[in-house]
């Protein structure tokens, strides 16, 4: 094969090599192009509206009333809505998720693990509309009963989203916990520390950068969630006063009004998407920084 250049076998091999190389290259390029195109589309569609409305009025405006004359496009309620619900989801999902991961990685008997692991996997695969339905028929009535109020609240959405981010938090935390060298654990036990103490005060701290990455990815999942949130959060575009108020998120704002919006209204919704996109970019940046810090 390695002989002279006229060898037809070698020629066709070279052709295949190049062909495959190009194919890989194009595939790799696809995702870059996709991100690039999304950026252009979003920013071109949204940024002009931000300036027409006024950047400050848009982001810090407390009232969203696209049908008023003149219309008001303040998305602060939705920004706060997304932040509240994401915060609530973190409060519910992160402690539960980390404890579950620690349990799965260090404490649970083999037999139980064989059930738990796939169960978490299934949780990750459930479509969000199904979660939303579960929220509507279980969580909302429960919240409404316990607090004798309307159940479509920040609280309901937080609980639901908290459950939805569990697989992300559990999966990544478990990997991080398993990656902690056994010698730390042995060192701790050898000092007479109990099993649980060793897990809490050596293993979890040693896994903290991985766990933090899990939390941030959970935030990303929570902030981008749309369908399930719409079904349980009420959807009122106003600043909430308590966790028992209904609320609208950035994503919900876009989905509920896009079908009938036109002109500036439509552009303002795209601009809402820009704000959401910026949130997601920040989250990705944090993950990247964390990964670099970890190595």
């Amino acid at each position: 094969m390695a002989s002279d250049k006229g060898d037809p076998g070698q020629k066709s091999q070279k052709f295949w090599e190049n062909f495959m190389k190009t194919l890989f290259f194009i595939s790799a390029l696809t995702s870059v192009i996709a991100v690039f195109l999304i950026c252009i589309f979003l920013f071109a569609g949204g940024i002009p509206a931000m300036f027409k409305i006024g950047l400050f009025e848009f982001i810090f405006g407390r009232k969203w009333a696209p049908n008023d004359v003149p219309p008001l496009f303040g998305i602060l309620p939705m920004i706060m809505g997304s932040i509240y619900i994401t915060g609530g989801a973190i409060a519910v999902g992160v402690p539960t998720g980390i404890l579950t991961a620690a349990y799965m990685a260090r404490l649970c008997p083999q037999n139980l693990y064989r059930v738990l692991k796939p169960a978490v996997g299934v949780l990750a695969g459930i479509p969000s509309i199904v979660y939303g339905f579960f929220g509507m028929v279980v969580i909302v009535p429960l919240v409404s009963q316990v607090f004798s109020a309307n159940g479509n609240t920040i609280l309901s959405a937080s609980i639901l989203l908290g459950i939805m981010i569990l697989p992300t938090v559990i999966g990544i935390s478990e990997t991080a916990i398993r990656a902690v060298p056994e010698s730390y654990y042995e060192g701790s036990l050898a000092l007479g520390a109990s099993n649980e103490w060793s897990i809490f005060f050596v293993i979890l701290p040693a896994a903290k950068s991985g766990i933090l990455a899990a939390v941030i990815l959970g935030v990303g999942r929570a902030i981008g969630e749309t369908m399930a949130v719409i079904m349980v959060a009420g959807g009122q575009p106003r600043l909430p006063n308590s966790i028992l108020d209904g609320v609208r998120t950035l994503t919900a704002n876009i989905v509920t009004e896009m079908p009938y919006a036109a002109d500036l209204h439509r552009e303002a919704l795209i601009a809402t998407g820009v704000v959401l996109f910026v949130f997601i970019l920040i989250i990705n940046l944090l993950v990247a920084l964390l990964k670099r810090g970890g190595n």
Partner: peptide
């Protein structure tokens, strides 16, 4: 009561 020092130094992070 019976402490241990390991072959490979294993201080906690």
């Amino acid at each position: 009561r019976v402490g241990m020092v390991f072959q490979k130094p294993n201080p906690f992070p």
